[in-house]
Design a protein around this nucleic acid. Sequence first.
DNA 1: CCTTGACTTGGAGTTAGCTCCAGGTTCTAA
DNA 2: TTAGAACCTGGAGCTAACTCCAAGTCAAGG
Lengths: 130, 130
Amino acid sequence: MTITEVSKKFGLSPDTLRYYERIGLIPRVNRNESGIREYTEEDCKWIEFIKCMRSAGVQVETLIEYVTLLQQGDTTIEARKQILMEQRDKLISRIEEMNRALARLNFKIEQYEARLVPVENKLKRLAHNI
Amino acid sequence: MTITEVSKKFGLSPDTLRYYERIGLIPRVNRNESGIREYTEEDCKWIEFIKCMRSAGVQVETLIEYVTLLQQGDTTIEARKQILMEQRDKLISRIEEMNRALARLNFKIEQYEARLVPVENKLKRLAHNI
DNA sequence: CCTTGACTTGGAGTTAGCTCCAGGTTCTAA
DNA sequence: TTAGAACCTGGAGCTAACTCCAAGTCAAGG
């Protein structure tokens, strides 16, 4: 696959794909005779994983660390597992944080919906503070 | 309350609190005779709300828009509700995205836990690609 | 043969959201 | 009454993660 195909497939710009490769987040992609990137199935699978983690907020640096360990072979299995577990914990707390915010938004929206409109002034405090 | 007290209470640095006020994310806080900020209960409630939204990833710009509308009174109620609903939708899709990433992390970790260690090479593909 | 368009590289620029700093004032405790 | 801590303001600096750009290569169509 060419870079534009991969770009369209995953919704990452060609610039981003090149950038990811440059910083070591994606292992070096093979080039054809004239130096143009030719993405393999394997490359795509990895990119999809990266896309998934990035869009969940996992830091680029962490993912680089992970791919680096991966390339070092079986001796790094424990370290990799550690990273995954750390990221899982972080993800869980961020999800909890977001659920709290969501509950709050829902409450506020309900206030607006319960024809709060005409008595907004009176109930302003209540509506804003929970 | 002084700025350091508020800072400690919400885990936002004094610099951040001043910054938020400067950009209009927090309405102007009253100063005492010698120009030092004196946060009211009201200020604190607002800051807590902002903190909650920010830590869920709601953009500063969006929150500024919201507080601006709020200060313009009852004529902006519909617009405010609109913002809240947009943010709720965004939040929901981000939570979904994060749950997908979480499921994936959990799967990978399980692979590592199921004594994948000795057969890592054989199952490498499976472990990485889902 | 020549132009067009997609690709290459290395490096510079951009954006959001803080974070730090200099230079100045004011409160607090010895 | 003086040293030091905490505060003020305006502005500069920083970090993460892209995003854009210039200058060059190459394949394909007219």
